[in-house]
């Protein structure tokens, strides 16, 4: 049982990293971004292409994160911004459409095959923790996830941009009244969302096979993590990621043939018992 918890916890780090941006956008813009998974698979595809072309993996991952960050800003400026004040369903439809278009373009550009990299830490491929051998790369992913969560929390809590983000989250009208450039805050928020998701995609390449057509699966997984952790909370997304990782690992260990049903069943129960998640900030979705 201990190793199931341990490996699930490790896996959860990457789920958390994948969900940070989703949670941020949901919290600040109040929208469910159905194009979120596209950032993840595109991050993986760009990283794979650059790494295959000889770029060091760290540079490739950063370039991928920058690419998806820019894409996020582009989507915000060209699409979401234009329908933001309309019915929330419009944003859902629009982000879904964007997801389909971008993933199809990614299919054409990068191919539709599943991709996987063998990523080891040179000289130290494994570490022994207690009686368990762990690939060092997974420790790296775990640390990156923790550091990036801390970074996001620090930015949100201790910078003027963070204050603007929180102000927009709490009340868009009040933020505008005190002179905050709300469209710019939203633009940067989507940029951060894209960059974090792209980084997650880059790291996932060493853990799970990834392909552009898997974007919607990742959107759903990010959604599930946010549901567990609580809407709009970075800490919640981190804890949600870990819990989802353990739930996912245990489901595939104990009930492999019905694992997806077990996972969704558990989440339905979770929603019934605690609709706002573990660390939710209350109702954040626009009505």
């Amino acid at each position: 049982m201990l190793d199931i918890f341990f490996f699930g916890f490790l896996r959860g780090a990457v789920f958390a990293l994948a969900a940070f941006g989703f949670s941020l956008v949901l919290g600040v813009l109040g929208i469910v971004n159905l194009a979120h998974g596209v950032f993840i698979v595109l991050g993986a595809s760009v990283t794979y292409a650059l790494y295959s072309a000889g770029t060091p993996i760290v540079l490739a991952a950063l370039a991928a994160a920058a690419t998806t960050g820019l894409l996020g800003m582009l989507i915000q400026r060209l699409f979401i911004d234009r329908v933001f004040n309309m019915h929330p369903l419009m944003v859902l439809v629009q982000t879904f459409g964007v997801a389909i278009i971008v993933s199809e373009l990614a299919n054409k550009a990068f191919g539709t095959s599943e991709r996987l990299l063998r990523l080891d830490v040179p000289g130290l491929p494994y570490v022994e923790i207690g009686s368990v051998f762990v690939p060092t790369y997974e420790i790296v992913v775990f640390v990156v996830s923790l550091v990036s969560a801390g970074l996001l929390v620090a930015v949100l809590n201790y910078t003027s941009f963070g204050r603007a983000v929180r102000a927009c989250r709490d009340s868009r009208q009040s933020a505008e009244l005190v002179g905050i450039n709300v469209p710019r805050v939203f633009l940067l928020t989507m940029g951060i969302c894209g960059a974090w998701a792209g980084l997650a995609g880059a790291l996932i390449l060493g853990l799970r096979p990834t392909a552009p057509h898997m974007h919607f699966m990742w959107t759903i997984e990010a959604f599930l993590v946010v549901i567990i952790g609580g809407l709009g909370s970075m800490g919640g997304a981190l804890v949600g990621g870990f819990l989802y990782g353990v739930l996912n690992f245990a489901a595939y260990y104990y009930w492999p043939s019905t694992a997806p049903a077990v996972i969704f069943g558990a989440l339905i129960v979770m929603l019934m018992l605690r609709p706002a998640g573990l660390f939710g900030l209350g109702t954040v979705v626009r009505k």
């Binding site: 096979p209 245990a250 595939y252 997806p260």
Partner: peptide, 12 residues
């Protein structure tokens, strides 16, 4: 017997 969409083989 695993679902077709299984990505993570570590539990197995």
């Amino acid at each position: 017997v695993l679902p077709m969409q299984t990505q993570d083989l570590r539990p197995t």
